[in-house]
């Protein structure tokens, strides 16, 4: 990643988001690095910026569910329930074809902006993450289940989804 792009990303993230989240991530990474935590309000702008700088190959999106853990002596105030959405983009033309991924932390009812308008490939990938993990992608044109039947109850990759959850038999 070039220093100019790093500076632009830093400038983008320095802007206060128009709609500040009620519960900002506890420890946002200050360096531009793989796996950095980005506020949800900056997600779409960051993808736009990266695409304009050659990161045009859509790689993948991976959502994960983090339920609130029980308070323990080690962690008296565990962080509240959250979702983490990691987005990976790649620059296929730069030397080394670097991939860059960042993470967005969401409260349970919070939605993340879809990037289907930038990357047509995000369509099915975001549908799959909604289907399996239950993260809502705002402005997605067709947020329907992809892998599971349309009448499936629940989102199986959530940590609170028991593996033996009863469900209606497949027709």
């Amino acid at each position: 990643m070039s220093p100019e792009l790093e500076a632009e990303i830093a400038a983008l993230l320095a802007d206060p988001p128009a709609d500040p989240p009620a519960d900002p991530p506890a420890d946002p990474l200050q360096v531009i690095a793989e796996g950095m935590i980005v506020p949800a309000a900056h997600h779409h702008a960051l993808a736009t910026l990266l695409k304009a700088h050659g990161y045009g190959l859509y790689v993948t999106v991976a959502a994960s569910h983090w339920p609130q853990e029980k308070a323990s002596r080690k962690e008296p105030n565990p962080p509240p329930e959250r979702f983490e959405v990691a987005t990976v983009l790649r620059n296929p033309t730069a030397p080394g074809a670097p991939a860059f991924w960042w993470s967005v932390h969401l409260a349970p009812a919070e939605a993340i902006d879809s990037i289907v308008d930038l990357f047509a490939g995000a369509d099915w990938q975001e549908r799959e993450q909604w289907d399996l993990v239950g993260v809502v992608f705002a402005n997605h044109p067709n947020l329907k289940r992809l892998m599971l039947p349309e009448d499936w109850q629940g989102h199986p990759l959530r940590k609170d989804y028991a593996i033996d959850t009863p469900h209606a038999p497949w027709r």
């Binding site: 045009g56 190959l57 859509y58 790649r90 296929p92 930038l118 990357f119 047509a120 490939g121």
Partner: peptide, 10 residues
Amino acid sequence: RDLALELGLS
């Protein structure tokens, strides 16, 4: 080429 990039075909 553009569509292939957007769809993640590498």
